[in-house]
Amino acid sequence: MTLLAIGIVALATVLVPLWRAIAFDGYGVRPPPRSHLDVDDVDNRGMPTKYAGLR
């Protein structure tokens, strides 16, 4: 019975971080469209010269 309890605790100790790493890795989340980036500065034609947060 003691070995079963230790086995259950060990299994949970391994599976919980594994599940969190797979579920929250960010690969399933789509990035926002490029048109929604914050623009720091634009040139004389209105084209962005640099984006906020990329530098």
Rank of each mutant, 00 (worst) to 15 (best):
M1G: 15
L3H: 08
L3T: 07
L4N: 06
A5W: 10
G7F: 04
I8D: 13
V9Y: 11
A10G: 08
L11D: 03
L11Y: 09
A12K: 07
T13I: 00
V14G: 00
V14M: 09
L15D: 02
L15K: 02
V16S: 06
P17D: 06
P17R: 04
W19P: 03
A21H: 13
A21V: 10
I22Q: 10
F24G: 00
G26E: 07
G28C: 05
G28Q: 06
V29L: 12
V29K: 10
R30N: 14
R30D: 14
R30S: 15
P31F: 01
P31E: 07
P32Y: 02
P32W: 02
P32S: 04
R34E: 13
R34Y: 08
H36L: 12
L37I: 02
D38H: 07
D38R: 09
V39C: 01
D41L: 10
D41F: 08
D41H: 11
V42I: 08
D43Y: 04
D43I: 00
R45P: 00
G46L: 00
G46T: 00
M47G: 00
P48G: 00
P48M: 00
P48H: 01
T49Q: 10
Y51N: 09
A52K: 11
G53I: 00
G53W: 06
G53L: 03
L54I: 06
L54Q: 15
R55V: 10
